[in-house]
């Protein structure tokens, strides 16, 4: 294509040709094609990347599934999130461990979870901890139903899921 067009004269036989390092037509000397690749810099870069990623690595796994339309509130002083029963408020709906509930059935569902915990850990005291995952714009009126339900079911420790600032 180049040979047919105007580029033939401008590129192939132009000033660039004379200055080409790869195959200068003017210079008769043969150059070595193979070149040594300096690997030290590459290993340095890789090592720094591995260290950076290891430092940010989270071994706790994914505890919360945050939906596309959900934005958690931001806080600068927050504790590490632990695995507890999750009560999710998503688009006006209530979920206890991904099971759809409403304001009337949330207490029964939480009591069911409490019963299961006590069956699995008969010699341990019930910790009464649950995590609330809600959008930052949710009104307290809605959140209050969850808090009251938790209180009735004996969940006294509430953990509000937040994004660290």
């Amino acid at each position: 294509m180049i040979s047919d067009g105007i580029l033939k004269t401008s590129v192939l036989t132009g000033t660039l040709e004379g200055h080409s390092i790869i195959s200068p037509r003017g210079a008769k000397m043969k150059r070595q094609v193979a070149a040594d690749l300096l690997l030290t810099a590459l290993i340095d870069a890789f090592s720094i990347l591995v260290i950076f990623l290891l430092m940010n690595f989270s071994s706790t796994g994914e505890i919360l599934m945050i939906g596309k339309n959900q934005e958690l509130p931001k806080a600068s002083l927050a504790a590490v999130l632990e695995r507890n029963p999750v009560i999710k408020i998503d688009e006006g709906k209530l979920y206890v461990e991904d099971k759809l509930v409403d304001a009337n059935t949330i207490t029964a569902e939480l009591l069911e979870l409490r019963k299961k915990y006590q069956e699995l850990h008969p010699n341990e005291a019930f910790p009464g901890v649950a995590t609330i995952q809600a959008d930052r714009r949710v009104k307290y009126e809605f959140l209050n139903q969850v808090i009251l339900g938790m209180n009735q079911a004996g969940y006294s420790d509430i953990k509000f899921a937040v994004v660290l600032k």
Binding site: S58, I66, A75, A78, A79, L81, Y155, K159
Partner: peptide, 21 residues
């Protein structure tokens, strides 16, 4: 190692605010 860490990385730092009732 880089591929594994990049795939498993959690970029969103989620924490919790503790409240006692």
């Amino acid at each position: 190692s880089i591929c594994f860490l990049l795939i498993t990385a959690v970029w969103l730092n989620v924490g919790s605010m503790d409240v006692k009732q």
